[in-house]
Structures are given as C-alpha cells and as structure tokens.
C-alpha cells in the first residue's frame, strides 16, 4: 500500500506502524462520573466495519507523525490522510 502523507507525499506503507481505529483519539474524561465505563469502552470496544474506516498509522520510519487514514477496508482505497494532531485540534476547536 501507499499512503499519501500530508507533509511528505506518497510513502510506502512499510514505513508505518498500524495502530487501529481512530476512536483512540477520543480519550474519555477521567473525572467523569462514569469514567470507568467510558475508559473500558475506549480501551476494549472497537467497531470493525467492512468499508470506510478511520484508522491511526504512525510514520515510524519517517517523520514520526501520527496520521488519521480513512481507508476502505474492502478495497484498500485510501480516501483521506490527515495529521492526527490537526484532526484533534480541529475537533476541539469545533466542540
């Protein structure tokens, strides 16, 4: 596979380490009343869609960026690649 890194352009997937579902960006609030349940879900529960999936890749053999890659798990088509940092900051600015 080839991933179109937002800063570095097309890079081979072998340069990256795969983590999984980008839901891991949404770490729960530890002070919430139901924190334990929410952390349990955050840690252990994942959707496993057949189709479009947002996932986290780490450019370990490169610039050490964490990326949010939107990929179709059925075709391996990559629809969008963003810096995870930008995604999180944008979400928090919008929230």
């Amino acid at each position: 596979m080839v991933i179109d890194h937002p800063l570095l352009g097309l890079r081979d997937a072998a340069e990256f380490v795969y983590l999984g579902d980008a839901a891991l960006l949404e770490r729960p609030d530890a002070t919430a009343a139901d924190a334990e349940t929410r952390f349990y879900e955050y840690q252990y529960l994942r959707d496993n869609p057949a189709g479009v999936h947002q996932e986290l890749w780490f450019h370990e053999q490169g610039d050490h960026s964490w990326l949010v890659v939107t990929r179709n798990t059925l075709t391996h088509e990559i629809l969008c690649v963003e810096l995870a940092r930008d995604v999180v900051l944008a979400r928090r600015a919008g929230a």
Binding site: F58, H64, W66, V88, R92
Partner: peptide, 23 residues
C-alpha cells in the same frame, strides 16, 4: 525503547496536542 517513543508521540500528538512539548 521504540514502543515507548511511539506511545509518547501518540500522547503528544493525539491526546494532548495543545501541550508545548517535543520529543
């Protein structure tokens, strides 16, 4: 060594991107 660094970068970029910290 590699795993800790990867996890620290995850914490820095994905969990707390507003912190001013570099690794």
């Amino acid at each position: 060594a590699a795993l800790v660094f990867r996890n620290l970068e995850f914490a820095r970029q994905c969990l707390w991107p507003a912190l001013d910290v570099h690794l």
